[in-house]
Amino acid sequence: MPVAKTQDGCEIHFEVMGQSNAPAVMVGYPWCNGWARIQNAMFNGNQASLDTMLEMNRQLVGTLASKYRVVNIEYPRGSAPTTGPFEGDLKAETVAGDYLAVADAAGIQKFVAIGYSWSASFGIQVASRTPRCAGLAVGAWPVLDAPHEQLRGQVDAFARMSPAGSPAQIIMQSNANYYTSILEGWDQESALSSMAAQAGRLYLFVGSNDQGVPGMSVPIAQAIVSSRTRLEQHGWTVDVIDGHDHVSLATQQNVWLGRVMNFFENKTW
Rank of each mutant, 00 (worst) to 15 (best):
Ile171Pro: 07
Ile171Trp: 14
Gly200Asn: 00
Glu184Ala: 11
Ala223Lys: 06
Glu189Val: 09
Ile170Phe: 09
Asn177Tyr: 02
His246Cys: 02
Ile170Asp: 12
Arg228Val: 06
Leu249Thr: 03
Asp187Val: 02
Gly215Gln: 05
Ser194Asp: 11
Arg228Cys: 03
Ser174Trp: 07
Gly200Cys: 01
Ile224Gln: 09
Arg201Gln: 08
Ile170Pro: 00
Gln173Phe: 00
Leu202Arg: 04
Ser248His: 03
Trp186Leu: 12
Gln173Trp: 02
Asn175Thr: 15
Tyr178Arg: 03
Leu231Val: 13
Glu232Met: 06
Ser227Val: 09
Gln233Ala: 14
Tyr179Lys: 12
Ala168Thr: 07
Pro219Tyr: 04
Trp186Met: 14
His234Asp: 02
Gln188Trp: 15
Arg201Tyr: 13
Phe205Leu: 09
Pro219Met: 03
Ser226Met: 04
Gln198Ser: 14
Ile170Arg: 08
Val225Glu: 15
Ile241His: 00
Gly207Trp: 01
Val238Trp: 00
Asn177Val: 01
Trp256Cys: 12
Asp239Gln: 03
Gly212Ile: 06
Leu249Asp: 11
Glu232Gln: 08
Glu189His: 10
Ser217Trp: 06
Gly207Ser: 03
Ala191Lys: 01
Asp242Cys: 04
Gln253His: 13
Val206Ser: 05
Gly207Leu: 02
Pro219Asn: 04
Ala191Val: 12
Ser193His: 13
Asn175Gly: 09
Gly212Phe: 05
His234Ala: 06
Leu202Ser: 06
Ala197Gln: 13
Ile171Asp: 15
Gln169Tyr: 13
Arg228Lys: 14
Asn209Ile: 08
Ser208Trp: 14
Val225Asn: 04
Phe205Ile: 07
Gln233Val: 13
Ile220Val: 15
Gly185Asn: 10
Asn209Leu: 15
Arg201Glu: 05
Gly207Gln: 02
